[in-house]
Write a protein that binds this DNA or RNA. Sequence first.
DNA 1: TATTGTTATACTCTATAACTATA
DNA 2: TATAGTTATAGAGTATAACAATA
Lengths: 160, 160
Amino acid sequence: MSMASRTNSGTPASNDRLWDSVVGNDLSFRLARANALSLAGVHAALAEYDLRVRSYSVLAIAAEGSRPSQRELSEFLRLDPSQIVALVDDLESRGLVRREPDPQDRRANVLVATDGGRELFRAARAASRRAEQEFLAPLGALGAPLDAALRMLAGAPDAD
Amino acid sequence: MSMASRTNSGTPASNDRLWDSVVGNDLSFRLARANALSLAGVHAALAEYDLRVRSYSVLAIAAEGSRPSQRELSEFLRLDPSQIVALVDDLESRGLVRREPDPQDRRANVLVATDGGRELFRAARAASRRAEQEFLAPLGALGAPLDAALRMLAGAPDAD
DNA sequence: TATTGTTATACTCTATAACTATA
DNA sequence: TATAGTTATAGAGTATAACAATA
């Protein structure tokens, strides 16, 4: 049965009996494991640019000119406002983004990428996409339904 | 936790423009966000039993009689051996699992659940499954392809 | 009075290196 | 020499409370 060829290169065959357990058949567990593997690939790709997944996300949104407030970033990325402060501090100290005062609300900052930030983002985005596509390659036609399912589970607005 | 608005009617509409970005359209990001929401639900369900997702996973595998070594758990759960030590220490101190010497390799321990451990596992499994099903409910027919896709991405052995 | 950004703190998670006893 | 388990430690991620400036 499970002696067939595996997508799991390098792992001892003895683990098959662990996969055949409640945990191994748990969708939450597979989701967590897939996410860990995905993160590892993207993280390795971004390391070359001294970016982590979280700082890349902040830089990406700023680089696209969305002009988000830190509060909006906090909600969207599911990070505490205090974590956004640390992320923006780091990116700003590296000259990749700027805090600009929001003319409509002087309490709020609006995040803008510098030219250097946009340039770094473009390179990092290419590397990130290569890693993602390599990770998703074995999926084949399952890619589309996975995308639709994750869109729902992640709470994204309805697709057009 | 409850900010995963289905139709996004509760969240400020301004976030829609963040979803419409490179990050929001990134499958890795959606995977991470879906995983975070899934984990939050399971975590809340397991908290009643003083279990975390990790300790639940170890307890579950032990309770099913797989008699795993700590090394096998380390590979399967993608945790460092030293983390397994801490998890097993905790479960053993609570009388839920026992370390038994492996007669074939005196370096290795084999993990066995106690009667109390099996009992707690059954209750925790029921709660965990309720949380998972609630989380997956909106998927409908997308559940099956999601399961197949995650099985591949997680590196599970081929289905029978 | 409520909200934005900030500081501070603590706790969990993750990663690594070194040690021991066995193989 | 290599492996299973253990100990120790440091860094990253997460959660919370309190505060100043502004709404």
